[in-house]
Simulated scan of single mutants.
Amino acid sequence: MDIKPLLLASGMIAATALAGCSTVGGSVYTASYASITDAGYKLPAIPVSKVPEQYRRQIVSYETKEKPGTVIVDTTSKFLYFVMPEGKAMRYGIGVGKEGFEWSGTARVAMKREWPVWTPPAPMIRRRPELAVYRGGMQPGLQNPLGARALYLYKGGRDTGYRLHGTPEWWSIGKAMSSGCIRLLNQDIMDLYDRVEVGAKVIVK
């Protein structure tokens, strides 16, 4: 009897048990929130046990008329869906705009940036004068509010000022506390970044 398949199967079971997984249609998708070094920056591991299970990255059944590759943001449920073929979607937990900073509509991903520079908009600086020091831009890093990746949303050829971006504040996922941007765990925005193409449709509702 060839024991290799059994060893491979047991190894897979052990790996998914450690990392946390979602089973969809007989396939297993494992979301990793381990520490990772990227472009010289060492992202810390996410204490995933403290992140509610529904906000962890997972494949889910999702019926929509939108084509695969579309991003749909459900601000009420605090979920972002990346539409996949055959009625599936990759779902991510998100943080959304706090009261008075909510928005909705349709936009396009005009640019993608790894380890982006963050420039606080003028209205934010007026609200928080201490941010004036970053008027010329805050350099990339582990404490940068845009995190490891950013997707820039445009509408009608104009910058909306809104982004889909990472955040070092993992505890803010599932909450309404941003200035309107949609934030994801750094490990999740890196996953989403690799899936989304420039020009992709983004629906925020």
Rank of each mutant, 00 (worst) to 15 (best):
G199R: 04
R91Q: 12
P44Y: 03
G25Q: 14
I203K: 09
R113K: 12
M177N: 14
K175R: 15
K65N: 13
V117C: 00
P116Q: 07
Q54S: 11
R183S: 13
T23E: 15
S22H: 11
S178V: 02
V96S: 10
V48N: 02
M90V: 14
V133M: 06
S10W: 09
G174K: 05
W170Q: 07
G137P: 00
S178G: 06
K78Y: 07
N186F: 06
T37P: 03
Y92P: 02
E53M: 02
L151T: 07
E130I: 09
G87L: 07
K65F: 13
P5A: 08
N186P: 05
V51T: 04
Q139K: 15
V196G: 01
T70G: 07
N186K: 03
G87F: 08
S49C: 00
Q54H: 02
P140D: 03
F79K: 14
Y55E: 02
Q139E: 14
T30G: 09
P68C: 07
K67I: 12
Y162C: 04
L7G: 01
N186M: 11
E130A: 13
K112G: 10
G26Q: 08
A17W: 08
S32T: 13
K42F: 03
A89L: 06
E169H: 12
E86F: 13
V96Q: 00
A148Y: 03
C181E: 02
T70V: 07
T37Q: 13
A107Y: 01
I59F: 00
M1F: 10
I173G: 02
F79N: 11
I189V: 15
W170P: 01
P85G: 09
Y154C: 03
M12F: 14
V117I: 14
Y134P: 02
I36P: 00
P121T: 02
A19E: 15
I13S: 04
L146S: 11
G166F: 08
G199P: 04
L164I: 15
P123Q: 06
T106S: 14
C181H: 07
S35Q: 08
L146K: 01
A45L: 04
A132R: 13
G137Y: 06
T16Y: 11
Y152C: 03
S104G: 10
G97F: 05
G166D: 05
Q58W: 00
Q139S: 13
V28W: 02
R195D: 09
T23I: 15
V202I: 15
S104H: 07
G174F: 12
L6F: 12
Y81I: 09
R128H: 01
K67T: 12
V71R: 00
A34Y: 00
R195K: 14
T76G: 12
R108Y: 10
V48D: 05
M84Y: 05
V83F: 01
Y41T: 00
T119A: 05
Y154G: 03
Y29L: 05
G180T: 08
Y162K: 12
A89Y: 03
E102N: 12
D38L: 09
M84D: 12
Q187G: 04
P120N: 05
G156P: 07
A148H: 01
G137T: 10
P5K: 06
A14T: 14
P5Y: 04
Y152V: 13
L18K: 14
A9E: 08
G93C: 13
Y134D: 06
